[in-house]
Amino acid sequence: MADPAHEPVAAMAGGGLYNRHSGLQHANLQSALPLLAAAARIIGEQSHGPVAIVDYGASQGRNSMVPMATAIDLVRLRDAERAVQVVHTDLPSNDFASLFALLDRDPASYVAGRDNIYPSAIGRSYFDQLLPSGSVDLGWSSNALHWMSHSPVDVADHGWAVFSQSADARAAVDAVLADDWLRFLTSRRAEMRPGGQLICQFMGRGPDSHGFEWMAGHYWQSIVTLRDEGWLTDAETQRMTAPSAGRSLVQVAAPFASNIVPELMLDHLSLVESPDPYWDEYRQSGDAARLGWQWAHMMRAANGPNLVAALDPSRDPDMLLDLLVDRLAARIAADPQRSLAFNVLLAIRRVA
């Protein structure tokens, strides 16, 4: 077990790749839309003038279009011309060009057919305050907060330290998760105006297991295969420990239970089983090869950039990612299963 340098976590794969291969994330966020709709109605009824909506962890925007359109329409129920500012935030390395191209040209854009909408973007980590104090009416974050600010530790026995046999490694993950969560809440407390609402959906941790073990295991074994075939060194393989993990409901609730963020009220907190749209399609088609292709390309889009960051500079990253996709797709096709994972859903309100 080694302590990695606190290198910044990489954004999702660029060139629109994440937009094309984030069907799982699109399915995940659906369960949080009723909470967003309720929050948007409250903002629309209880506030006046321009509305500021912030999309924390937007990536390339494909999965932001429906939530933002929903929020815009509901905050404008009493005034269809009400000005709405939508701010998308993500890491500096994010592919914002794909986001703005989608906003400008795609029929699914929330700008299409709506006037007085003002989109913008901020390329900074949401673990820090991004906007002026008291300026945000409605916040939204989906499929993002299981990513840590940095990888707390590299382990040699798995691609995720939360699945390591080392208790010290798992404790290091939980320590960073707790610190990151408090930083996120403290920053949102500053940005939100009194009465402001924040809705989040992200990977959780189940009551009896973390969840995501099947896919995480196949991903790690595919990396091990590449190492055993001579494509990766031991050092590179260990550096590929992914900077992500789910939180339990107790971990999510801890800052509220200890009254560390007294201005924030936790109005809703639940854990739901994640959907698996790839498995649903497989049950209809029986096409195991396609099931493997879908999972492998989603994992490349979401985890590939952090894997590439672990490679020695002399490597051909695209070639190695192609090899990883091939190995992972083959493993999944030979072992088709429904993925068992969990989503945390929460609604937070700024009360003072």
Rank of each mutant, 00 (worst) to 15 (best):
S64K: 05
M68K: 01
M68Q: 02
A69D: 07
A69G: 13
D73Q: 10
L77V: 14
R78C: 08
D79K: 00
D79I: 04
E81D: 06
R82F: 00
Q85W: 00
V86D: 05
H88K: 02
T89G: 13
T89S: 12
D90V: 10
D90C: 05
D90I: 03
S93Y: 04
L99N: 02
A101M: 11
L102C: 03
D104E: 15
P107C: 12
D115E: 13
S120K: 05
A121M: 01
R124A: 10
Y126W: 05
F127L: 14
F127N: 14
D128N: 15
L130H: 09
L130W: 08
L130P: 09
P132L: 00
S133R: 00
V136N: 00
V136C: 01
D137K: 01
L138K: 02
G139Y: 06
W140G: 01
S141N: 10
S142Y: 08
S142N: 09
N143F: 14
A144N: 15
W147F: 05
W147S: 09
D154M: 11
V155R: 05
H158L: 03
W160T: 06
A161D: 00
S164Q: 08
A167T: 11
A169W: 07
R170D: 13
R170V: 13
A171R: 10
A171K: 07
L177M: 15
L177G: 09
A178N: 04
A178H: 03
A178E: 09
